[in-house]
Structures are given as structure tokens and as C-alpha cells.
């Protein structure tokens, strides 16, 4: 059996076969776990017993590392969540065109990520965007 025949027996991980999605779902889960634990520890365990305040948040986000980490968390979590939603839809509904479904969910993800970036702007620049 040469290499060409072997490919027919052991499929390569391509997105068409869903292997790439499967792999990315595991990778994203690991990233979410790592950054999620950091998120909870940094926000809730540095000042325990004290509510989160605007002043404290803008002070923390002066460090660009946290801005990057929180946005990375949002992006990866959105990928993971929407891929999960896609899995549930594909399991329960016979989807004629899976590519359209994937594109629609991708669009929704982009919109939510854009909203998340926009919502974070006041905490990064240190004041509400539309204040007098």
C-alpha cells in the first residue's frame, strides 16, 4: 500500500471532515481554561471582599497585557461557544447547507466580538466615550 492509498484509509484532518473543528474545540477549551482562571484570580482574588469599581478597572487595564488577554479570552470563548451551538444544531436539525450555517454563526461571532471591544473602550481610555 503506497502513501496515496493510505490517505484513503486514514483521512487527513481537513475542515471538510470536521477534524479541524474537533481539534480547535479542544485547543480553545484549554486556552479558555488557562485565561479564565487568570481572569477570575486577577479580578476577584486581588481585592477579595471589595466590589469591582470603575477606577480599579481602568487602573488594571492601563496594563496592555490584560486588555490583550481579556480580548483573547472573549474571542476564543466565542469560537468555542458558537462551535458548540453549531454542533447542537447539526445534531438536532437536518442542515442542508452546513457551510451557510457556519458562515452565519461566524458572522454572529464577529458582531458579538465587535460589541465586546466597543464595550471595553471606556475602561481602556479611562472615561466614557460620549461624556461631556
Amino acid at each position: 500500500m503506497n502513501g496515496k492509498d493510505l490517505n484513503r484509509v486514514v483521512p487527513r484532518p481537513t475542515s471538510r471532515q470536521g477534524m479541524l473543528g474537533w481539534l480547535l474545540q479542544r485547543l480553545s477549551a484549554t486556552i479558555i481554561f488557562a485565561i479564565g482562571v487568570t481572569h477570575i484570580v486577577v479580578i476577584h482574588y486581588t481585592t477579595p471582599g471589595e466590589p469591582i469599581t470603575f477606577a480599579e478597572s481602568i487602573q488594571r487595564l492601563e496594563n496592555p497585557l490584560f486588555v490583550v488577554l481579556w480580548l483573547l479570552l472573549l474571542g476564543v470563548a466565542l469560537y468555542h461557544v458558537l462551535y458548540g451551538v453549531r454542533n447542537i444544531i447539526v445534531d438536532f436539525v437536518t442542515v442542508a447547507n452546513k457551510r451557510t450555517l457556519t458562515q452565519a454563526l461566524f458572522g454572529i461571532g464577529i458582531v458579538i466580538f465587535g460589541a465586546g471591544v466597543f464595550f471595553l473602550v471606556p475602561l481602556v481610555i479611562g472615561k466614557p466615550l460620549f461624556s461631556n
Binding site: I112, L120, P122, L123, P128, F130, S131
Partner: peptide, 11 residues
């Protein structure tokens, strides 16, 4: 995300 959006309404 909606919680974070409140930052647009001021401190």
C-alpha cells in the same frame, strides 16, 4: 458583556 457595557454610562 452587558455588564461591561455599563462602563459607557459612566463610573
Amino acid at each position: 458583556l452587558i455588564e461591561v457595557m455599563l462602563s459607557h454610562f459612566g463610573p
